[in-house]
């Protein structure tokens, strides 16, 4: 069961998600070891595969480093649920086949440690701890297509092959 790790913070930036001192590599496993390090040094230890990060406004602001998404993917984070996302980070997520979920009241309806299940297609988060279903606006179709294809390059390949 996926757990929610809630950070009641706006503007969690890419320097916090993966500090620049680790940008001398693009190896996912190496990056994952430092995921969220400058925000929460325990994050990597407590995050189990499929767990979700829940945060406030403007998640992923700052640098264009896709390393931020790779660090989250490498740490096996299932999705980030935030009130909204910074533009480049949002795009990088989709391009990497990773779900950015926009939910206006994210940090109010999900508490730290809640057990949740996300249905990406239907746009529903099942908060099992609170026994509540939370609706979110699913990503646009073309973005879901890219994610389902495994990312932008896979999508381009597939489209060219078709």
């Amino acid at each position: 069961m996926a757990k929610a790790h809630v950070y009641k913070r706006d503007h969690i930036n890419t320097d916090e998600i993966i500090p620049a001192r680790y940008l001398n590599t693009d190896n996912m496993a190496e990056l994952a070891a430092h995921c969220m390090e400058d925000l929460d040094t325990n994050f990597v230890k407590k995050c189990k595969p499929g767990d979700c990060i829940v945060a406030g406004d403007d998640f992923g602001c700052g640098s264009s480093r896709e390393h931020a998404v790779w660090a989250l993917q490498g740490a096996k984070v299932g999705a980030v649920i935030a009130k909204n996302f910074a533009r480049i980070f949002y795009r990088n997520c989709i391009n990497c086949g990773f779900y950015p979920i926009e939910l206006a009241n994210a940090t109010e309806v999900i508490n730290d440690g809640d057990e949740i299940e996300v249905d990406y297609k239907k746009g529903v988060i099942n908060n099992k701890t609170q026994n509540k279903e939370i609706k979110f606006k699913p990503l646009p179709d073309f973005a879901i297509e890219i994610i389902n294809d495994g990312g932008l390059l896979e999508h381009i390949q597939k489209r060219t092959a078709d």
Binding site: D26, S64, R65, E66, N92, N95, L152, L153, I156
Partner: peptide, 28 residues
């Protein structure tokens, strides 16, 4: 492939930063 690519807009161009996957797609 850098968020501050928006700098070049000072020269009346459209300019924006992208991540590595977008960069790969653009290069190819």
């Amino acid at each position: 492939g850098d968020s501050h690519t928006c700098t070049y807009g000072a020269l009346a161009a459209f300019s924006t930063g992208i991540g590595s996957t977008d960069l790969a797609a653009a290069i190819a």
